[in-house]
């Protein structure tokens, strides 16, 4: 809740972030999506305007561009800029055990249900970013003593972030929050049991990470490549407009076995999507769905 403690004004101390005066307009976004599509084959045309516009604004500020057309020029003339561009367009803010109640639900209900019918099973982390949720899953499976019975595929569109995810390291400065989440998840021990501190990073025990395959995959244009018992795609589709959400959901639906599970972010819903009737909601609070129709 709001902290109502009376404190003295600190207006004089607050630093003003320097914001550029470059205004990013919708027409600019179209120019950028056009060049990225034609030259590099990535399609951002159905990204949600508000966040895409903010990502472009961020690129303007980070690389000190003076106008949006400078970004277009850079993309046209410098192929090596693409990776940096993709890395900034995609949002890579994530936590271990974000929404602890979600992870409890996965541990206490979803996975036990999968295990009723399957000796081994597979999980897809679609849009895994720097991998915090993948690591969370490995710890959860380890604590359930079934880590060696699960195949995990983790994919992302952004190659540098995927390379980072593969290392299985998390900045130590984030571990306080991660540890808090883990305590709320009611894990068996302490997060510290699973990592060693090295050069400012929490390096996860490599034995935990053996079952993971990381893959560069574009959720928007990539073809269905496998079927899974559980897909986590949390806070990924919020960056898409409804048209693209529909297309991606069809793909996720196709990538699920019948009666298997899809988890989206706690403030996402399938209510408005075209294939909503092919799912039932298993846990509305944590937004976990079950595929009931092919």
């Amino acid at each position: 809740m709001i902290d109502s403690q009376k404190v003295t004004s600190n207006a004089s101390q607050s630093r003003l972030v320097k914001k550029t005066s470059v205004e990013v307009e919708i027409a600019d976004l179209r120019k950028i999506t056009e060049i990225v599509k034609v030259k590099y084959g990535y399609d951002f045309s159905d990204y949600a305007m508000s966040s895409f516009r903010r990502r472009i604004q961020r690129i303007v500020e980070m690389f000190h561009f003076n106008s949006v057309s400078e970004i277009v020029n850079k993309l046209e003339t410098d192929n090596s800029f693409l990776d940096a561009f993709l890395a900034e367009i995609t949002v890579n803010v994530t936590e271990m055990f974000r929404d602890p109640a979600f992870w409890r639900e996965v541990r206490d209900h979803i996975i036990p249900n999968i295990l009723l019918n399957h000796e081994t099973f597979s999980i897809w982390h679609a849009g895994c970013s720097s991998g915090e949720e993948v690591l969370s899953m490995c710890i959860l499976l380890k604590e359930m003593d079934i880590l060696d019975r699960v195949n995990i595929i983790a994919t992302d569109i952004d190659k540098p972030i995927l390379a980072k995810a593969k290392k299985g390291q998390v900045p130590i400065k984030n571990m306080e929050l991660n540890e808090k989440n883990y305590i709320r998840f009611q894990g068996q021990g302490s997060l510290k049991d699973y990592y060693e501190e090295k050069n400012g990073m929490a390096v996860l025990d490599p034995a935990l990470l053996q079952g993971i395959s990381y893959r560069n995959f574009d959720l928007v244009q990539g073809a269905v490549f496998n079927k899974f018992d559980l897909i986590l795609c949390r806070n990924v589709m919020i960056y898409f407009n409804q048209n693209l959400q529909n297309r991606v959901l069809k793909k996720l639906h196709e990538s699920l076995f019948k009666y298997s599970y899809l988890a989206v972010g706690s403030k996402e819903s399938l209510i408005w999507c075209e294939i909503a009737n092919k799912f039932i909601i298993v846990n509305n609070e944590e937004k976990i769905y079950k595929k009931i129709k092919d």
Partner: peptide, 10 residues
């Protein structure tokens, strides 16, 4: 967001 709707972001 456009179309008189909300967009969430992390």
């Amino acid at each position: 967001e456009l179309g008189n709707s909300f967009s969430l972001s992390t």
